[in-house]
Amino acid sequence: MYQKILLAFDGSPDGREALVQAENLALACGATVHLLAIIDPSESMLIVEAMSFIPDNQRFVVQTVLDEGVKRLRRAGCTATSELKYGKPAEQIILSATDISADLIVVGHRDQGTLARWLNGSVGESILHQPPCSVLVAVKSEQGASNVTPIQQRKARGKG
């Protein structure tokens, strides 16, 4: 069914829910999961004396989150890779899905009110306007109890 899954991953609770759902699909289908994190320069840049730059610590934090996601998938038995890109999230997700010939894009669902969604936009909704493949928007269950264990807690348990 699916051979290549692109997971837009930011390490947030919504992103971790998407990670779990991508993991379950990958295990069921024998698919490779490609984790993608995007730093949006328009939201991340510091401007100092007419020079703009993205702080190194932000790159480090995002790369650490990606690495933890890949480790979790590999421990579960999945084949996983990761990539960090810069740009507008929806555009980068579509470009990456096209570049790797993804069969499925998985994104988390961030619960926002109507006004916040209008002001901030929705990456998932933007992707749906020109999807290169199927799209799964991972939503937490109705009961509110997530089936996701935070990455740090899972890592700590494995050491014991």
Rank of each mutant, 00 (worst) to 15 (best):
M1F: 10
Y2N: 14
Y2Q: 10
L6R: 02
L6P: 00
A8Y: 08
F9Y: 15
F9P: 11
F9I: 01
D10G: 09
D10T: 07
G11V: 08
S12Q: 12
S12G: 13
P13Q: 13
P13R: 11
D14Y: 10
D14E: 14
D14P: 00
G15L: 09
G15Q: 09
G15V: 07
G15F: 06
R16S: 13
L19Y: 02
L19H: 02
V20Q: 07
A22D: 05
A22E: 03
E23G: 05
E23H: 05
E23M: 08
N24A: 12
L25P: 00
L27E: 09
L27M: 15
A28G: 12
A28Q: 09
A28V: 07
C29P: 01
C29T: 12
C29A: 14
C29N: 14
G30T: 12
G30F: 04
G30K: 08
G30C: 14
A31E: 01
T32M: 13
V33T: 05
V33H: 01
H34N: 12
H34V: 03
H34A: 11
H34I: 02
L35F: 04
A37M: 12
A37N: 14
S42W: 04
E43V: 09
S44C: 09
S44F: 02
L46D: 11
L46E: 10
L46V: 11
L46N: 10
L46K: 08
I47F: 10
V48W: 12
V48E: 09
V48C: 10
E49Q: 12
E49V: 03
A50P: 03
M51Y: 07
M51I: 07
M51W: 06
S52W: 10
F53Y: 12
I54L: 09
I54V: 14
P55D: 15
P55L: 15
D56C: 06
D56P: 10
N57E: 12
N57P: 07
Q58R: 13
R59T: 14
R59V: 14
V61N: 07
V62G: 05
V62I: 15
T64D: 15
T64R: 14
T64F: 12
V65C: 07
V65P: 01
V65K: 04
L66A: 06
L66S: 04
D67F: 02
D67Y: 03
E68C: 04
G69K: 00
G69R: 00
K71H: 15
K71R: 15
L73E: 01
L73D: 02
L73Q: 03
L73H: 02
R74G: 00
R75A: 07
R75G: 04
R75Y: 08
A76F: 11
G77M: 10
G77L: 09
C78L: 05
C78K: 00
T79A: 04
T79V: 15
T79Y: 00
T81I: 07
L84G: 03
L84M: 10
L84A: 07
K85D: 10
Y86G: 08
G87Y: 01
G87W: 00
G87L: 02
K88I: 04
P89Y: 07
A90R: 01
Q92F: 00
I93S: 01
L95E: 04
L95Y: 02
A97Y: 04
A97E: 03
T98R: 12
D99G: 11
I100A: 05
I100P: 00
S101R: 11
S101Y: 10
A102Q: 04
A102S: 10
D103R: 06
D103M: 13
I105N: 02
V107C: 06
V107E: 02
